[in-house]
């Protein structure tokens, strides 16, 4: 499996009134084509920052991000991103929210609509096209976020704590549906980087887990998850792995 994303010695420094603060220190990481990579770590350790650097939303202070072998400069439009806060525009309907990125790519109205409908359908949102975000429950909102990210048919899906703002039942439902979606061969995206602070979520979803430590943010360990799918959340192997990752964080 070749690496699709390579991070080489990534450092991020933010200026602060009381001096500079280093958020990420010398992070090197490869994301393999077709894998699900989970990034876990304590809150504030720089997980979101790392994800945004991968996407090119913010530049690293030092180091290089390579995508498919090429050094990247600016936003990488081969990535789609899902946000913890959903980040939907409240004045656009579900369909319009999903179409935003398609319009930006200059597709004509008919194609935009068709493509948006396809992904709205895939995430189970059909019937909600005309709804505004504020009419939807949290779970439905995040489905819109997911459909929007998928609609641009990215190579890599980046997810920043996508289920953290949801209640336990909703997040389980969405997680299962994400796994189903990922198993769908018709879906162009097969590489996922998911940031989470729930270890069980990481163990359930990921092929590999990267554990970050804080102050400054750095990689402590990278763990392969060899459990067979579908994964049994109640199995002893599952619990053992959860415990192991947990011990690395604290």
């Amino acid at each position: 499996m070749p690496a699709i994303i390579e991070l080489e010695h990534i450092t991020k420094i933010y200026p602060r009134p009381e001096g500079e603060s280093q958020i990420l220190a010398d992070v090197s990481l490869e994301v393999m084509d077709g894998e699900v990579l989970a990034v876990v770590g304590p809150s504030g350790c720089g997980k979101s920052t790392l994800l945004r650097i991968i996407h090119g939303l913010i530049p690293p202070s030092a180091g290089v991000v390579r995508f498919a072998g090429r050094a990247q400069d600016g936003i990488n439009l081969s990535c789609g991103m899902v946000f913890q806060s959903f980040a939907l525009l409240p004045w656009l309907t579900v369909e319009q929210n999903v179409m935003v990125g398609l319009e930006a790519r200059g597709l004509d109205d008919e194609t935009c609509r068709k493509r948006a409908m396809k992904y709205i359908d895939k995430v189970g949102l059909d019937g909600n096209e005309e709804a505004y975000p504020r009419e939807l429950s949290g779970g439905m909102k995040q489905r819109v976020g997911l459909a929007r990210a998928l609609a641009v048919e990215p190579k890599v899906l980046l997810m920043d704590e996508p289920f953290s703002a949801l209640d336990a039942l909703t997040s389980i439902n969405l997680r299962e549906e994400l796994i189903d979606l990922w198993g769908d061969p018709a879906l162009p995206v097969d590489t996922i980087v998911i940031v989470t602070h729930l270890i069980e979520e990481a163990v359930e979803l990921a092929d590999r887990i990267v554990v970050l430590a804080s102050n400054p943010g750095r990689i402590v360990e990278s763990i392969k998850v060899e459990l067979p799918r579908p994964r049994e959340r109640k199995s002893p192997e599952f619990s053992a792995l959860v415990d192991r990752v947990f011990s690395l964080i604290v």
Partner: peptide, 10 residues
């Protein structure tokens, strides 16, 4: 909101 739109290439 800015990030989401930038991510979408808007």
């Amino acid at each position: 909101s800015f990030d989401a739109l930038a991510s979408q290439g808007v």
